[in-house]
Nucleic acid binder design. Structure first.
Lengths: 347, 347
DNA sequence: TTATCACGTTTAAACGATTAAACCTTTTTT
DNA sequence: AAAAAAGGTTTAATCGTTTAAACGTGATAA
């Protein structure tokens, strides 16, 4: 690469010290500097197309104006949508974003944290994988500014921005019950992640508080290792036997996707044979036969607020902020009320 | 943030100069340094949990081990899949990735380039928006290492890694012709981007070289401003009148998606009423009634090779590399041969 | 005995910015 | 006329590394 212009080059060209150039270009000490010299400096800077070296600036100020974003997998629509929102909000405040995918793997997560901190990011947005409590605690001990997004640990007093997961599935089940469904199954992930277990808890409470029995056999926890067959099997199991379910709630976007694939290949008719509530919004739903009722996370708000809170907490002594945003249940044809005749699915 | 350990801290603790510490920790001058001192330094570094400050290192070496990635929109599956592949390959070689979304906007692209260069990224991977030739030329003049991905400019002698776009649609049309379709329409984007116009050219050649007339009325160029209605209308136009098409080829993943949505809402039966070839692979296809024949880009190879080439070209005097990878036509039910009876769509 | 060499380590400049403090002039105040 | 203030600019240290060159010291060679 061709050497870029430095302060020194400008200083030399104008015949002043680098300090003066720095002051002028940063609009400091404005009343002290002669108009004429300032003009000249600005002009030469322009001519030489001066662009400050952020690395040098960062070294001196120990601010990089860069945020680190750790997601599960940037190729996952949830992550990439989040990334986009974070990018925009960061950009609005003059920050750039470095990202990394943890693949839900604690070791990878640790490696990412270390790498990003070595690059001196000013703060971190983390969708923490299961088993990373200690890493997060360490960050906190080091007083690294960070905000957890999507996932968080109830045992840790850290800033986070997440969903009200409990309420999200509670509302979904409640809606199913209101629509006349009585035997509601849940397909979820086998994980210790709080945000997921909360979804199961919401499901369970909704059943019980609405006078329906909670049956363990109606909850299928999948490992996520070979999802497509596992989900297909789970659906089959839930729908067979002497007490088949009439509705299924999925607790993640991937599960929903795999579930719909299975439903399609098993030729199950929605909602007449089975009602379905999906998690998260996906383009893919729009190509599915029946329009899908789903739990919508306020992604935009989540990403934007998380970024704002992080940028805020770059200032010392900012208090911890814990936010659980409410999900919206988007009601469509896949949970058509049993009491009314089915209508054409929405487009 | 708590101050991190620096070379100086270690030097002080051990009672040697920072230079020696640096040499030891970088495994330099190994034969010159006494085993005992080296051991001590390593031990103290470990104890103090020393992590080199990459910013300082970068300033000195003018290498950041960071790559800049400019995509159209990180929230788009094509971009995010690409990002993931780039991330992995970069990581494998010890690089991190900073990204930005151009939204196909030249101004935004320029801003991103400037920002990334100010942060001293070592090189750039760019999916260039239309109208950014001059920006790319400037980069080249500055001898900034970069590789264009997906899009490129035939007029510029730059490194790029893209698809053989011409061949991709040529093959698709050829396949349609072979399957008995004779009146083939194209839905594409109104753009000057070479990779898209090449797709139109491939379509046209395939028709002509197979003895079919090329009719301008069968090519619909959409602005992409309000896609859903526009695509729906284009499909309607193509299928009505005295000479309706019996097949449609889409030239981008978004167009395909919108197209399928329209096809679903217009209750068009595939392939009996219309054959369809989509562009790119998408999860969404899997939820669609009919399995879709589509043009698959070798994303993995593209991202990985592009990254490798970029990293390679960080070394001075690396020659320009221009690569057009072949697409694969994944044949499914939506282009079922007219001469054989339709079978169950693949799952 | 003195020059040469090897060994282990330190010195100090450099990367490109920032910024408090110092330094001249000139002008204003007393 | 001397002191103080204001105006305009420079000096020099600093951030945390890297690295060529120099520096002692003890051993070896001439």
């Amino acid at each position: 690469m061709i050497k870029k212009t430095s302060l020194k080059d400008i200083a030399q060209a104008v015949g002043v010290s680098t300090a003066l150039v720095s002051y002028v270009l940063n609009n400091q000490k404005e009343n002290r500097i002669s108009k004429e010299v300032a003009r000249k400096i600005r002009q030469v800077a322009q001519e030489l197309n001066y662009q400050p070296n952020q690395i040098a600036k960062s070294l001196k100020t120990s601010k990089t104006r860069t945020l680190g974003l750790i997601v599960a997998d940037i190729a996952n629509p949830f992550s990439s949508s989040m990334a986009r929102i974070v990018e925009d909000e960061a950009d609005r405040q003059g920050y750039t974003v470095v990202f990394g995918s943890s693949d839900e793997n604690p070791q990878k997560c640790q490696k990412l944290i270390t790498t990003l901190l070595n690059r001196q990011v000013d703060g971190l947005l983390i969708a923490a994988p299961a088993g990373t409590e200690s890493q997060i605690m360490t960050l906190q001990k080091q007083t690294v500014p960070f905000v957890l997004i999507d996932r968080y640990f109830p045992s840790l007093k850290t800033s986070y921005l997440a969903l009200d997961n409990y309420q999200s599935t509670y509302d979904a089940v409640r809606h199913l019950v209101d629509s006349g469904y009585q035997r509601i199954g849940l397909i979820t992930l086998k994980t210790s992640l709080f945000h997921i277990t909360e979804r199961t808890r919401g499901y369970q409470s909704a059943l019980q508080e609405n006078g329906l029995p909670f049956q363990k056999s109606r909850v299928k926890e999948l490992s996520g290792n070979n999802p497509t067959p596992d989900v297909a099997k789970a659906i089959q199991l839930l729908r067979t036997g002497q007490d088949p379910v009439d509705a299924i709630v999925f607790t993640t976007n991937s599960l929903t996707f795999w579930g719909l694939k299975a439903i399609k290949s098993q030729h199950i008719n929605l909602p007449s044979e089975l009602a379905v509530v999906g998690f998260d919004e996906t383009d893919a739903y729009e190509l599915f036969d029946t329009s899908i009722t789903y739990i919508r996370q306020p992604l935009q708000e989540m990403g934007q607020l998380a970024t704002k809170i992080l940028l805020e907490s770059l200032n010392p002594n900012t208090p911890i902020t814990q936010t659980n945003l409410k999900a919206t249940l988007v009601i469509q044809a896949s949970t058509q009320s049993l009491s009314v005749p089915a209508v054409q699915s929405a487009e």
